[in-house]
Computed example of a mutant assay.
Amino acid sequence: MEPTVKTRENTVLLGVIAACEVGFWIILFAGLAVRYLLRRPRLGGLLLLCVPLVDVVLLTTTVLDLRGGATANFTHGLSAAYLGYSVAFGHSWVRWADARFAHRYAGGPPPTPKPKHGRARIRYEWVEFGKATIAWAIGCGVLLAMIVMVGDPERTRELMGWAARLTVVLAIWAIWPVSWTFWPSRSKGDEQAPTPGPPASRR
């Protein structure tokens, strides 16, 4: 394949990835706007259900490109990684935005901030790491499926490199929950709390 053709294909796939990212947020905020600004919760919920379709578009485009004889490159691996993180964290992003829209436009309670100290923060970090692990598993699973589908090691060498990249990212991510578990921070109130002294003697 000529370099100009490869460059054109890479540009198209990168454009699809960018469009999917933009489309995710457009559909998300459109659904929330319809739900809370137009006061049409059913239609808003229907729009929010369309958010995963963005991932379907990206996966379909990537698979069709590889089945068409393309050699896997950086953009194919990037699409698998994006798909993994979008599936693993997408629901959390929707809840994050929904809580803020509900508070701002529907009189809902203030969004719960991220915990800063103690066991709550440790649990939060492990939950986020669990999502990252799911993203890693999905991304690597998609990469493996692409490799099996193509069946040509020369055309899928870049995909193996992406599996290694995702593994390195997950290993680095693990630093946060481990560090919070073994070296947790305490609130200022806990740090400044006076230590109880010996009981006063009675005369």
Rank of each mutant, 00 (worst) to 15 (best):
L47T: 00
R155C: 12
G197D: 11
W176R: 10
I26Y: 07
T7N: 14
G90E: 04
D55N: 11
E9K: 15
R67D: 11
A174M: 03
A135E: 02
S201G: 13
A99T: 06
W136C: 04
A120K: 05
G31M: 02
R121P: 00
Y36L: 07
V148Y: 05
K116E: 14
R119T: 12
W180V: 02
W25S: 12
K6V: 15
F74T: 12
G45P: 00
C20S: 07
N73K: 13
G130R: 02
P196C: 15
V150D: 03
T4N: 15
P52T: 04
P198C: 14
A18Q: 10
P115D: 14
P109V: 05
V57L: 07
L64D: 13
E21Y: 10
M149C: 05
C140F: 11
E21G: 11
L37A: 09
T7K: 12
D98W: 05
W176Q: 09
S187K: 06
V12F: 15
F29N: 12
Y85F: 09
D55E: 10
L78K: 03
T112I: 12
W173Y: 15
S187Q: 07
I134H: 01
G107Y: 09
F89Q: 05
W180K: 03
R40Y: 11
I26F: 12
V16I: 10
V51Q: 04
W180H: 08
I138Q: 00
V150P: 00
L53Q: 08
A99P: 01
A72N: 04
T167P: 00
A99E: 11
T133N: 06
L37W: 09
G77F: 08
L159E: 00
W93E: 11
L47A: 06
